[in-house]
Design a protein around this nucleic acid. Structure first.
Lengths: 225, 225
DNA sequence: ATATATATTTAGATGCATCTAAACGACGGT
DNA sequence: ACCGTCGTTTAGATGCATCTAAATATATAT
């Protein structure tokens, strides 16, 4: 039986593997999970002995297929919960992450199934992240670019907002920006401010937000949802 | 911050105090939670040092008002979750207990509030147990008797089925017996079998089930729900 | 009243997840 | 090729929840 903490490590490594090329360094995981590096080393030894990760000392760590399956299941739980909280319990999309984190390790298969059924087997969660299917195949992460890389005049659709930074999410939610929102870049000010137009309104976004907000060209409509 | 385990001990002591007069003995708690007595002693010391229980060595344990409040909150979570699973996720009433046990320590105040709102502030759960209100006053447990104490011919309403024994619950659920069900005692056979009539049908119940199933006279209608 | 049975507590150990401090390996710059 | 820096691992400690075995207190029966 895997502990909650082990599941968290596997989920984190999975997420980090989408951002960086494996192997994932000890310090990267430590920072992501807000623990010290020796803690990561010791956990990595346990996960390796259970065949959930491969580990090269002093280099880093990579999920095995088994480890990836565990990670994908936890992520499926997380994103189904987020979707459920948003659509059935009236949570705002910037509030769902922490609650889903707390519950994701504790729901049964039964609960997972009923949730998916109730939601009509959704394929994306409220942040725009793909929801793995019941077979636990790792979902495709569609190609996106960050808003900050776009020039003035570009017409875009919001594809995904990272669910890890509560401040940024709240900012976006307050500004009415969510996956599916159409926007046009009005101005990329030299120092730290980004201006976009949404439904004719000018919305100002700090560069930090623009650097993490993922978008795709407005032309192609939602195909994957 | 209290651990999940501490919350479980407090909840258990609360439940045991409804059954036996305090103080509650070490071995009683040990058996209820399926741990060894020394484990209970050591946990009792911790809970005492936090002012959540009073403890008399070699005698047993009793909740303080603070301890009771914690227990009642956990029980509120548990019973709201049970109600939600039964009414919104199509769980059968004999399936909800384990899932609620797994989740009760991990939901936020926010989640609790939204659940209560969604359910219309229910006052009893699917087993017939009272749901504490948001002020966390300990709920009244209505006077009931067990089915096994009744004589042939008595007309009764099912008030409550303990949610701790999965086997018995499944038996009752299969037999169509649930809180609110009206029944008449047909036969109290001398050795271990109880026969009741429900909607004109004869239903056979093992004595073990009849000894835990709580009922009240059929005359007074549901007043408290 | 004393011996015996039973329940409780104490003592000491284990595994988990974490930490700090210290040792060690890898890697880039001169 | 060496040295120093930086990141990683080892070593050892802590707190939690649990166990078994042993000591001790309480209750019961004669």
């Amino acid at each position: 039986m895997l502990s909650d903490v082990m599941e968290d490590y596997l989920k984190s490594i999975y997420n980090l593997e989408r951002e960086h090329e494996p192997p994932i360094a000890t310090s990267t995981i430590a920072e992501y999970l807000d623990v010290t590096p020796p803690t990561v080393t010791s956990m990595a030894e346990k996960l390796e002995s259970r065949g959930l990760i491969e580990r090269e000392k002093y280099a880093g760590v990579e999920l095995t297929p088994d480890g990836e399956t565990v990670a994908v299941e936890v992520i499926r739980h997380h994103r189904l919960l987020e979707s459920f909280l948003a659509t059935h319990l009236d949570y705002d999309w910037d509030e769902v992450h922490d609650e889903a984190d707390a519950l994701e390790h504790h729901i049964s298969e039964e609960f997972e199934d009923r949730l998916a059924e109730k939601l009509g087997d959704p394929t994306v969660d409220p942040h725009g992240d793909p929801i793995p299917n019941a077979d636990l195949e790792p979902p495709e992460h569609p190609d996106t670019e960050v808003l900050a890389d776009h020039a003035e005049g570009d017409a875009l659709v919001v594809a995904r907002a990272s669910d890890r930074n509560t401040d940024e999410l709240r900012y976006l939610a307050d500004a009415g920006v969510q996956p599916g929102t159409e926007l046009t870049v009005t101005e990329h000010a030299p120092i730290g401010l980004f201006v976009v137009e949404i439904d004719g309104e000018a919305v100002h976004l700090p560069e930090r937000v623009a650097e993490t907000l993922e978008v795709r060209p407005a032309a192609d409509e939602v195909t994957d949802a």
